[in-house]
C-alpha cells in the first residue's frame, strides 16, 4: 500500500455552540488522509455537520461558538485566533446540502472565487473556468451557454456547478455535507462518480446518511454518536468487521 499522508489532523477537538450548556463535539481525534475520501456517518444530531463546519471555521460567521483542542493543517493549528480565515477557506472548500448557485451566469459563478483572488485576466479566467467545469463533469452540458443564468440548470447540474466552483480555486481539501440528499438517483450517481475522480487532486471529507454511498465512495469512515467519535478506520473494516458494538448496531440499521 502507498504511504498515507495526514492532510489534516483533528486532535482532542471539542466544540460548543454559543449559549449551549454542553459540548456538541467531545475530544474528537481524527486524521484526514491526503487524496482519500473520508466519510462521516452517524445518526441525526451526532455532530457530523458541526465537525465539518469546524474544519473551514464557517462557524465563525456566528458569534460566541467555542473551539478547544487542535486542528492541524499545513503546519499550523487553524483554530488559533490569528488564523487568516479568508485564506483558509480558499484552501478548504465546502459543498452544501442544497445547491447554492449564485444569482449570476454559469460563467460568473465559476469566475467568482477566482476574481476574489484577484485573477482578472480574461484568457486566464476562461482557461481556469473550462478546466473547473471539466473537473466538475459539467463542461459538455454547459459549454454552449456559459452566459445563461445558473438557476436555469437542474438541481444536479447546479450541484456540479457548485463543485466546479469549489475546485476552480484549487483547494487542498473539499468538505461535502450530504451533497446528494436533495438530488435524484441519476444526479446522485454522477456526483458520486465525480467525487471518486476528484480525489486524485483533492482530499475529500463527506458527511452522508446513506450507508451504501459511504461504502461505494469512501476509503475511510468515521462513525460518530452523540458528539463522540466512536470508531474510525478503513471503510471496509468499519462496515464488515467493526470493533465497537455501537458501530455494528448502527451499520446494521438497528438505530439511527
Amino acid at each position: 500500500m502507498e504511504k498515507e499522508i495526514i492532510d489534516l489532523e483533528v486532535k482532542d477537538f471539542s466544540f460548543r455552540y454559543a449559549g449551549a450548556s454542553a459540548d456538541s463535539l467531545k475530544k474528537i481525534n481524527l486524521p484526514i488522509i491526503k487524496n482519500k475520501v473520508t466519510a462521516l456517518i452517524g445518526p441525526s444530531g451526532c455532530g457530523k455537520t458541526t465537525l465539518l463546519r469546524s474544519l473551514n471555521r464557517i462557524h465563525d460567521l456566528y458569534p460566541g461558538n467555542e473551539y478547544r483542542g487542535e486542528v492541524n493543517f499545513e503546519g499550523r493549528n487553524i483554530l488559533s485566533a490569528d488564523e487568516d480565515l479568508i485564506h483558509l477557506r480558499t484552501r478548504i472548500g465546502m459543498i452544501f446540502q442544497k445547491p447554492t448557485a449564485f444569482p449570476m451566469s454559469i460563467y460568473e459563478n465559476i469566475a467568482y472565487g477566482l476574481k476574489l483572488q484577484g485573477i482578472k485576466d480574461k484568457t486566464v479566467l476562461s482557461g481556469r473556468i473550462e478546466k473547473a467545469l471539466k473537473g466538475g463533469a459539467l463542461w459538455g452540458e454547459v459549454k454552449e451557454r456559459l452566459n445563461d443564468e445558473a438557476d436555469a440548470l437542474s438541481g444536479g447540474q447546479q450541484q456540479r456547478l457548485c463543485i466546479s466552483r469549489a475546485i476552480a480555486v484549487e483547494p487542498e481539501i473539499i468538505l461535502f455535507d450530504e451533497p446528494t440528499s436533495a438530488l435524484d438517483p441519476i444526479s446522485t450517481e454522477a456526483i458520486e462518480k465525480l467525487i471518486m475522480e476528484l480525489k486524485d487532486e483533492v482530499t475529500i471529507v463527506i458527511v452522508t446518511h446513506n450507508m451504501q454511498q459511504a461504502q461505494r465512495i469512501s476509503d475511510y469512515t468515521a462513525f460518530m454518536y452523540l458528539g463522540d467519535l466512536i470508531e474510525y478506520g478503513e471503510t471496509d473494516k468499519i462496515f464488515n468487521n467493526p470493533d465497537e458494538e455501537l458501530t455494528k448496531q448502527y451499520i446494521s440499521g438497528q438505530f439511527g
Binding site: N56, I58, L61, I86, R89, G93, M94, T100, F102, A166
Partner: peptide
Amino acid sequence: TPQILKESAYALGAT
C-alpha cells in the same frame, strides 16, 4: 438572502 447562499460565498474566501 438565504443564509446558505451567504455561507457559500464565505466558503470560497469572500470577505
